[in-house]
Design a protein around this nucleic acid. Structure first.
Length: 431
DNA sequence: ATCGGCTCGCGCAA
DNA sequence: TGCGCGAAGCCGAT
């Protein structure tokens, strides 16, 4: 089944003079259940070459703030140590991935990379595929079912994709067993960036917009595993009973780890199933809702353009209600500072600012309210994208774009006419 | 507290 | 071609 995750991205041959196999790691920042790492190790062993894992640290990733980088760098510094212990070379370089991977490629026998799903990571991979003159393989490892194997087009709603996913999930959710490293020759890279998250932030990332979380989760594969253990032990039972009751809000807290690929959904799936507890509601989230979000961004490249996101019935409905009176109209600034009249909404916004996450249910309520408080849907949409991308640790993620689009009728059905929203589903605070 | 209706269009059986 | 049904909705009737 691992072969079904590989996409050969060019026609170029291996470089017979290559000194190493390169795994350009970007989206899957982990060792556990990393299919791209597995493929790269297999190739290295076959060719008798050492493996180089290269990560490119971009100093100006779109929308990223210091808190995002900190979480990611915490994970990378642990990862680097683990790889070294396994006999695998690691280099992290500051700059533009296309330039740097092209440079690493000069001495590589072949290249493996993980897959990017949203516009920017995807574009970089497309550019590299055209530019490189050495074999380039792309591996879909951040989904249980690779996005193109799951469904061949943009799904209208969850019901369309659900049976396909559920039919394939057990086939694809199997543990990756990494081969032993056979050649652990140490390679030397002078341009590598090293040190703790703090050191790297203060030395190399000084141009960033500063936003630090007061209650951030800690980044890294072992903390992802701990969060999973904790969720299964303490919250899975309640999740099955009341995940749609906001006052009993049960969160898996795994989405920041999933966003940076610090944990594999395969790992989560297997561990949750192995617990023996009922888990249908959680599996629905992990498999159906998550893969639907990836399906959305993969097949609809304008996933962050309101016009391209709304179904026609929602468009017409919003238009008919464009002159409805709003209960309040808030500026981006007021929203950003959690200064509305609604204490529940402010709490959700403050949680976003301080922890970098919002409970799934609350994010929908959060979004629906922004629609109600904006003079038009376009402004609401743009503000939601901005706030989520900037403040959520897992912003800039398919789940975020799909969640925001849902607030505007995407993947949903029409409902009873009401003010401002028309036939688009509305939500009110409960208790 | 619980239930059917609201409303649209896709997916699939027929 | 027709029918079932859908992310967390609301409303009014019982």
């Amino acid at each position: 089944m691992i072969d079904n995750r590989i996409n050969r991205r060019n026609e170029a041959p291996d470089n017979p003079k290559g000194k190493y196999v390169l795994y350009w790691m970007q989206g899957a920042q982990r060792i556990d259940n990393n299919h791209a790492l597995y493929i790269a190790m297999k190739h290295a062993n076959l060719l008798g070459l050492p493996l180089l894992v290269g990560f490119v640290l971009m100093p100006n990733y779109p929308h990223a703030v210091t808190g995002h980088y900190r979480f990611m760098l915490e994970g990378l510094s642990l990862l680097q140590k683990e790889l070294k212990q396994m006999g695998i070379n690691w280099v992290m370089t500051l700059g533009d991935p296309v330039q740097i991977v092209a440079k690493w490629a000069e001495e590589a026998a072949l290249i493996v990379m993980d897959k990017g799903y949203t516009r920017f990571p995807r574009h970089m991979r497309d550019v590299l595929a055209k530019r490189l003159h050495v074999s380039l393989y792309e591996v879909d490892t951040n989904l249980i079912i690779p996005v193109e194997k799951a469904y061949p087009k943009e799904a209208y709603a969850a019901y369309a994709i659900r049976p396909h996913l559920m039919k394939l999930v057990s086939e694809y959710a199997s543990t990756v067993v990494l081969p032993k490293v056979q050649n652990d020759t140490q390679l030397c890279f002078e341009e590598g960036v090293e040190g703790t998250a703090d050191m790297i932030l203060s030395k190399h990332l000084t141009g960033l917009r500063s936003h630090e979380y007061t209650h951030a989760p800690r980044g890294g594969e072992i903390y992802a595993q701990k969060a999973l253990d904790y969720f299964i032990a303490e919250h899975l039972k309640a999740y099955e009973g009341s995940s749609n009751h906001p006052n009993k809000s049960v969160v898996s807290r795994l989405s920041p780890y999933l966003h940076f690929g610090q944990i594999s959904p395969v790992t989560i799936y297997e561990r949750v199933l192995a617990s023996g507890l009922p888990c249908a509601a959680f599996i629905e989230q992990l498999v159906v809702r998550r893969e639907l979000a990836y399906n959305f961004v993969w097949y609809n490249k304008e996933y962050d353009q309101l016009e391209r996101v709304m179904p026609d019935w929602a468009k017409e409905s919003f238009e008919r209600h464009s002159h409805d009176e709003r209960p309040a109209v808030y500026s981006l600034n007021t929203l950003e500072e959690a200064g509305t009249y609604d204490a529940y909404w402010n709490a959700a916004q403050n949680e976003l600012l301080q922890k970098g996450t919002i409970h799934n249910y609350m994010r929908m309520y959060w979004g629906k309210k922004i629609i109600e408080w904006s003079s038009n849907p376009q402004e609401a949409f743009d503000n939601m994208i901005y706030l989520n991308d900037t403040y959520a640790i897992d912003g800039r993620d398919p789940n975020g774009y799909a969640g925001i689009a849902w607030c505007f009728g995407k993947h949903d059905r029409p409902f009873f006419e009401r003010k401002v929203f028309g036939k688009v589903r509305y939500m009110i605070s409960e208790g």
